[in-house]
Design a binder for these strands. Structure first.
Lengths: 340, 340
DNA sequence: GTGAAAGCGCTAACAG
DNA sequence: CTGTTAGCGCTTTCAC
């Protein structure tokens, strides 16, 4: 006997047991029309007795919209995205929607397919924290008429809410310049999405230009063959004009960098200064004391979810617009004056 | 004109456009029966032309089972659970299932309700990383015949796969004893679930007993009124017989503890030793160098998902059994010999 | 090989 | 107030 194939109680079972019709049951469940008190009790009892639980699949099929939203994240293991995802899930739950999770692992490969699956599930909307840039995926979403909003991501093709990354980078550079640094490198992060990294890179360039300084190198921690203008950290350390400061694309990258620097015998911030981005909770620990740019993560999540639901219930317009929230420079112990 | 309410193309549209019946379309989509090559092409073309995407809601309703699993987590913002969740999502996706996420925020309050919603979605199974102990919630799952497996959680009422927490705690204590510590406190973590904390606590007690040593205090970082035998860290620091070592319930708690200790002027490991649990990636950083117990997180995720699918496809028996994976002591820089 | 038909469980008119 | 009815989009026998 396959116990699992036992059929769940349906609304019809409830109707039968309580001696009313399906509609009446539906009415007492959703309070969608007044029901005589006697029958209401009967129905409630029957529901209880049968352990009846409405079938969301059937409901959503009928309503032609589901109460789920898709959440696409680049790397859940990064504490910043863990926190952001957590907040999003909470806000979404509060709106009585469930969250379908997709971790893209910062790889473009699975993007199209995963989004396609989300669409098959008929999600009411998509919150995307990492966009690899697959135009076909976006087209599909568009054609399906499913609203999508970028959270901590910026792309002109859809609504976005993110920290003002360029501004943050400018603040970082400015801070470093004020400390007398002149050779400032940039270290993009892997978990962070391309456009975000690009914006931070642009801010870094601008900050430098503003002072008429040459752009420092773009660095990677990976020792694999660096492509293009990217340079490995290892190759930099021995260089005579090694940067005196690094601006990292996010906090975890910054922490990794510091680790590398220190195990190469350099002191932070004595020999080299480092500033991160995100201000994850760990950045504030006494042993880390990372100077960084705080992202207003709760606001980002709040805005993102709010805008998505604005689109879902049609109260919001369809035009793609960008909300940029200001980052805040948090000066801690990984930056110090440049040695002259 | 409400663009969003435009109906998606259905299988009937495809059938009409390609001049065949629904069944044939279904057959070419699922390759469930041979279809003449000519018709097959026609159908494929029509699908492409219409941008047809099967409706998972309808499919699942008909099949009476959905291709989703519910994932319940206590605190996604904790890096350990972020990573575990990520792994679970990947494995689940590989099995062509989608993941519905529920963050319980380590609060029992929402547990019953969230699980109920998962059941309404007719998830094929539930993976639970945090169980507050709500028996009614469990009953409901049971009655619905939905398989549930605990991941990094142990409870006799369902299948579980977790690190051998007691063993880990014993190893921690043993390590500390070997270093000459005699007053060893335990600091449970908040993100971690009660039974897990209990197991670690039990292991800690056992380890101590084994050497005939008295149990040290159970400590909390919160300065709110501690209940029962729990004592605040603050009250301990001034005490003449302050512990010389702490065993923390997880790495983030350990890192918080170190922070507190150090800002109170104590040196770690000079004055007091600390060992964590989990071995999250950050624990290995040069600045942290946390001595901890490594959980085999990939194995846990792998086993958990595997067992869940074993139940889903009926190949696994229904009896609740516990899989315990061995932790590994990783000695780093937060433990040192006790000062005599 | 292919199509017709019977639902899956529920909602939403619409009558009474 | 309450019941009847007509689907939502798809899978799955079962004939032809």
């Amino acid at each position: 006997v396959d116990e699992r194939r036992r059929r769940d109680a349906t609304i019809i079972d409830v109707a039968r047991l309580s001696g009313v019709s399906k509609s009446t049951v539906s009415n007492v469940i959703h309070d969608t029309a007044p029901v005589a008190e006697g029958k209401r009790r009967l129905v409630l009892d029957a529901i209880d007795k049968l352990g009846y639980r409405p079938n969301a699949l059937a409901r959503d099929l009928k309503r032609r919209r589901s109460a789920t939203v898709g959440v696409v994240v680049g790397d859940l293991a990064d504490p910043f995205f863990g926190e952001l995802t957590k907040l999003i899930e909470q806000l979404t739950a509060r709106a009585n929607y469930m969250t379908i999770l997709c971790d893209i692992d910062s790889a473009v490969g699975t993007e199209r397919e995963k989004i396609s699956l989300l669409l098959e599930q008929r999600v009411a909307g998509i919150l995307i924290m990492y966009f690899g840039g697959d135009a076909a995926a976006l087209d599909a979403v568009e054609r399906a008429g499913v609203p999508i909003v970028g959270v901590s991501v910026v792309d002109p093709r859809f609504d976005c809410v993110a920290t003002d990354d360029a501004e943050g980078a400018r603040l970082a550079v400015q801070h470093l310049l004020e400390l007398g640094h002149e050779r400032i490198a940039y270290l993009p992060s892997r978990a962070t999405e391309a456009s975000t990294n690009a914006a931070r890179l642009a801010g870094w360039e601008q900050g430098l230009q503003h002072d008429g300084l040459p752009r420092g190198p773009i660095v990677t921690l990976d020792d694999e063959a660096p492509d293009g203008e990217v340079v490995t950290l290892a190759s930099l350390l021995d260089s005579p004009d090694r940067p005196t400061a690094f601006f990292a694309g996010n906090d975890t990258t910054a922490m990794r960098l510091i680790d590398r620097l220190e195990s190469a015998g350099l002191r932070v911030p004595g020999d080299v200064s480092v500033v991160g981005f995100d201000d994850i909770w760990l950045a504030g620990l006494g042993r880390v004391e990372l100077t960084t740019l705080r992202q207003p993560v709760a606001e980002i999540a709040g805005w993102g979810v709010k805008r998505l639901f604005g689109h879902i219930d049609g109260s919001d317009s369809r035009s793609a617009s960008q909300v940029k929230l200001p980052p805040e420079l948090v000066v801690r112990g990984t930056t110090a004056p440049a040695r002259s």
